[in-house]
């Protein structure tokens, strides 16, 4: 494979990719850790500022990295993991909503508002998914 002195070697490109991917992980963990630490020590505004700063850094790395950070296999893995996650939440929503509706009629137990809120959150999740699906389909 021909190379010249200014062209990065394969090893350089792979190590660059690895470095940037580690940086992404570091920004996520760093942002969460800084947020938790600053909130615990009584600096809520600084906590959110640190968190948002890391989020901006994350997007800067994601879109500004000089090498491709994620390839087609990463996209496939992400798609399958997302599909699995949606399937799990679909089962939880179908069974949970039915149980939540039925329980007050057959027992004295009242479903906590947090549980109802979570179920409505799942409904919103699937609503957003349906919109996103329609949008993507309309463009293909």
């Amino acid at each position: 494979m021909p190379t010249n002195s200014t062209e990065p070697t394969p090893t350089d490109r792979l190590s660059t990719r690895r470095r940037y991917r580690r940086l992404l992980g570091g920004l996520v963990l760093g942002g969460v850790a800084a947020n938790l630490a600053l909130r615990a020590t009584g600096y809520p505004v600084a906590a959110e500022a640190a968190y948002l700063l890391c989020a901006v850094g994350l997007f800067a790395v994601l879109f500004g990295a000089p090498v491709t950070l994620f390839d087609e296999r990463d996209a496939t893995l992400e798609r399958r993991a997302s599909q699995l996650t949606l399937n799990v939440f679909a089962v939880v929503l179908i069974l949970g909503a039915s149980v939540a509706r039925l329980v007050p009629h057959v027992t004295d137990y009242t479903v906590p508002p947090e549980v109802r809120g979570a179920l409505y959150g799942y409904v919103a999740l699937f609503g957003v998914f349906a919109l996103a699906y329609g949008y993507v389909r309309s463009r293909r």
Binding site: M1, P10, T11, R13, L14, R17, T68, D71, E72, R73, D74, T76
Partner: peptide
């Protein structure tokens, strides 16, 4: 060629080349 060389040549990760060779992807 190493897996890394081929990965760079076709612009994917070394793990992707490994997964293709092992018929997992």
């Amino acid at each position: 060629m190493s897996q890394a060389d081929l990965a760079v040549a076709v612009d994917v990760s070394r793990q992707t080349i490994n997964a293709i060779e092992r018929e997992r992807y």
